[in-house]
Protein backbone atom coordinates (compact mmCIF):
# COMPACT_ATOMS: atom_id res chain seq x y z
CA UNK A 1 0.00 0.00 0.00
CA UNK A 2 1.37 3.41 -1.00
CA UNK A 3 1.78 5.81 1.90
CA UNK A 4 1.05 9.45 1.16
CA UNK A 5 2.29 12.52 3.00
CA UNK A 6 -0.60 14.95 3.11
CA UNK A 7 -1.68 17.97 5.07
CA UNK A 8 -5.15 18.82 6.26
CA UNK A 9 -6.25 22.11 7.77
CA UNK A 10 -8.25 20.88 10.72
CA UNK A 11 -10.25 23.39 12.72
CA UNK A 12 -7.92 26.09 11.40
CA UNK A 13 -4.64 24.34 12.15
CA UNK A 14 -2.55 22.63 9.51
CA UNK A 15 -1.78 19.01 10.37
CA UNK A 16 0.71 16.91 8.44
CA UNK A 17 0.15 13.18 8.37
CA UNK A 18 0.95 10.02 6.49
CA UNK A 19 -1.94 7.95 5.22
CA UNK A 20 -2.20 4.81 3.16
CA UNK A 21 -4.18 5.19 -0.07
CA UNK A 22 -7.19 3.35 1.28
CA UNK A 23 -7.58 5.26 4.54
CA UNK A 24 -10.82 7.18 4.86
CA UNK A 25 -10.95 10.68 6.28
CA UNK A 26 -12.92 9.24 9.21
CA UNK A 27 -10.10 6.94 10.24
CA UNK A 28 -7.40 9.50 9.52
CA UNK A 29 -9.15 11.97 11.82
CA UNK A 30 -9.82 9.46 14.56
CA UNK A 31 -6.83 7.15 14.49
CA UNK A 32 -4.04 9.30 13.02
CA UNK A 33 -4.90 12.66 14.52
CA UNK A 34 -6.94 11.86 17.62
CA UNK A 35 -10.05 13.81 16.61
CA UNK A 36 -12.30 11.14 18.08
CA UNK A 37 -15.31 13.44 18.37
CA UNK A 38 -16.21 12.37 14.84
CA UNK A 39 -18.07 9.09 15.23
CA UNK A 40 -18.18 5.90 13.21
CA UNK A 41 -21.70 4.48 12.90
CA UNK A 42 -21.87 2.55 9.65
CA UNK A 43 -18.90 3.29 7.34
CA UNK A 44 -21.36 3.31 4.46
CA UNK A 45 -22.68 6.84 4.36
CA UNK A 46 -26.04 5.86 5.80
CA UNK A 47 -26.07 7.18 9.38
CA UNK A 48 -24.27 10.52 9.27
CA UNK A 49 -22.47 10.11 12.62
CA UNK A 50 -19.18 10.84 10.88
CA UNK A 51 -20.30 14.10 9.26
CA UNK A 52 -17.60 16.79 9.12
CA UNK A 53 -17.35 19.97 7.10
CA UNK A 54 -14.98 19.95 4.14
CA UNK A 55 -14.45 23.50 2.96
CA UNK A 56 -17.68 24.31 4.78
CA UNK A 57 -19.80 21.59 3.16
CA UNK A 58 -21.11 18.65 5.21
CA UNK A 59 -19.63 15.35 4.12
CA UNK A 60 -19.66 11.78 5.40
CA UNK A 61 -16.04 11.35 6.37
CA UNK A 62 -16.40 7.57 6.02
CA UNK A 63 -17.00 7.93 2.27
CA UNK A 64 -14.00 10.01 1.30
CA UNK A 65 -10.35 9.01 1.25
CA UNK A 66 -8.03 11.19 3.27
CA UNK A 67 -5.54 11.39 0.44
CA UNK A 68 -8.13 13.07 -1.77
CA UNK A 69 -8.42 15.99 0.61
CA UNK A 70 -4.80 17.11 0.70
CA UNK A 71 -4.73 20.81 1.56
CA UNK A 72 -8.45 21.11 2.24
CA UNK A 73 -10.11 22.64 5.28
CA UNK A 74 -11.86 20.24 7.62
CA UNK A 75 -14.07 21.25 10.54
CA UNK A 76 -14.86 18.66 13.18
CA UNK A 77 -17.01 18.90 16.30
CA UNK A 78 -13.88 19.78 18.27
CA UNK A 79 -13.63 22.94 16.19
CA UNK A 80 -17.03 24.40 17.06
CA UNK A 81 -16.69 25.77 20.60
CA UNK A 82 -14.07 28.47 21.04
CA UNK A 83 -12.11 28.63 24.29
CA UNK A 84 -14.67 26.40 25.93
CA UNK A 85 -17.62 28.59 24.94
CA UNK A 86 -20.30 26.58 23.23
CA UNK A 87 -21.72 27.90 19.95
CA UNK A 88 -25.37 28.99 20.03
CA UNK A 89 -26.19 25.69 18.34
CA UNK A 90 -24.36 23.59 20.93
CA UNK A 91 -25.89 25.67 23.70
CA UNK A 92 -29.36 25.14 22.27
CA UNK A 93 -28.75 21.37 22.19
CA UNK A 94 -27.86 21.53 25.89
CA UNK A 95 -30.72 23.85 26.79
CA UNK A 96 -33.38 21.78 25.06
CA UNK A 97 -32.11 18.33 26.01
CA UNK A 98 -31.38 17.42 22.40
CA UNK A 99 -28.69 14.96 23.46
CA UNK A 100 -29.18 11.51 24.93
CA UNK A 101 -26.44 8.96 24.25
CA UNK A 102 -24.58 11.62 22.29
CA UNK A 103 -23.25 9.35 19.57
CA UNK A 104 -25.08 11.01 16.69
CA UNK A 105 -24.60 14.46 18.21
CA UNK A 106 -21.30 15.45 16.51
CA UNK A 107 -22.71 14.61 13.09
CA UNK A 108 -25.97 16.39 13.86
CA UNK A 109 -24.06 19.49 14.97
CA UNK A 110 -21.97 19.53 11.81
CA UNK A 111 -24.95 19.12 9.46
CA UNK A 112 -26.91 21.75 11.35
CA UNK A 113 -23.93 24.11 11.44
CA UNK A 114 -23.65 23.88 7.65
CA UNK A 115 -27.38 24.51 7.33
CA UNK A 116 -27.33 27.59 9.54
CA UNK A 117 -24.38 29.00 7.66
CA UNK A 118 -26.10 28.72 4.30
CA UNK A 119 -29.58 29.46 5.61
CA UNK A 120 -29.55 31.41 8.89
CA UNK A 121 -33.35 31.33 9.25
CA UNK A 122 -34.37 27.82 8.25
CA UNK A 123 -37.94 26.58 8.51
CA UNK A 124 -38.72 23.37 10.38
CA UNK A 125 -38.96 21.54 7.06
CA UNK A 126 -35.58 22.96 5.98
CA UNK A 127 -34.09 21.53 9.17
CA UNK A 128 -35.75 18.14 8.78
CA UNK A 129 -34.38 17.89 5.26
CA UNK A 130 -30.91 19.05 6.25
CA UNK A 131 -30.77 16.38 8.95
CA UNK A 132 -32.23 13.58 6.87
CA UNK A 133 -28.78 12.04 6.49
CA UNK A 134 -28.19 11.99 10.23
CA UNK A 135 -29.86 9.15 12.09
CA UNK A 136 -30.65 9.32 15.80
CA UNK A 137 -32.09 6.42 17.75
CA UNK A 138 -32.56 8.14 21.11
CA UNK A 139 -34.31 11.47 20.74
CA UNK A 140 -36.98 11.11 18.07
CA UNK A 141 -35.43 14.26 16.47
CA UNK A 142 -37.99 16.71 17.84
CA UNK A 143 -35.66 18.38 20.30
CA UNK A 144 -32.80 18.42 17.83
CA UNK A 145 -35.00 20.27 15.36
CA UNK A 146 -36.18 22.60 18.11
CA UNK A 147 -32.55 23.25 19.08
CA UNK A 148 -31.61 24.21 15.52
CA UNK A 149 -34.59 26.57 15.41
CA UNK A 150 -33.55 28.07 18.73
CA UNK A 151 -29.97 28.51 17.54
CA UNK A 152 -31.19 30.26 14.42
CA UNK A 153 -32.77 32.84 16.69
CA UNK A 154 -29.71 33.11 18.94
CA UNK A 155 -26.92 33.90 16.55
CA UNK A 156 -26.91 30.88 14.28
CA UNK A 157 -23.96 28.61 13.75
CA UNK A 158 -21.21 31.15 14.49
Amino acid sequence: MVIHQISLIINGTEEGLQVPSNMTLLHALRDKLGFTGTKNGCEAGECGACTVLVDGEPMNSCLVLAVELNGREITTVEGLAENGKLTPLQQAFADLNAVQCGYCTPGMLMSATALLRRNPQPSEVDIQEALLGNLCRCTGYQRIIDAVLKASRNGGAK
Binding site: F35, L86, A94
Partner: peptide, 21 residues
Amino acid sequence: VKRVEDPRLLTGQALFVGDVT
Protein backbone atom coordinates in the same frame (compact mmCIF):
# COMPACT_ATOMS: atom_id res chain seq x y z
CA VAL B 1 -32.33 20.28 35.20
CA LYS B 2 -29.97 20.53 32.22
CA ARG B 3 -27.72 17.55 31.76
CA VAL B 4 -24.26 17.65 33.25
CA GLU B 5 -22.91 15.19 30.70
CA ASP B 6 -23.74 17.39 27.70
CA PRO B 7 -20.72 19.72 27.55
CA ARG B 8 -18.46 16.72 26.93
CA LEU B 9 -20.82 15.12 24.42
CA LEU B 10 -21.34 18.39 22.54
CA THR B 11 -17.66 19.08 22.08
CA GLY B 12 -16.42 15.63 21.11
CA GLN B 13 -14.69 15.08 24.46
CA ALA B 14 -16.76 12.20 25.81
CA LEU B 15 -14.95 8.86 25.79
CA PHE B 16 -16.63 5.99 23.97
CA VAL B 17 -15.03 2.56 23.63
CA GLY B 18 -14.07 3.32 20.03
CA ASP B 19 -12.07 6.30 21.27
CA VAL B 20 -9.80 4.21 23.50
CA THR B 21 -6.26 4.00 22.14
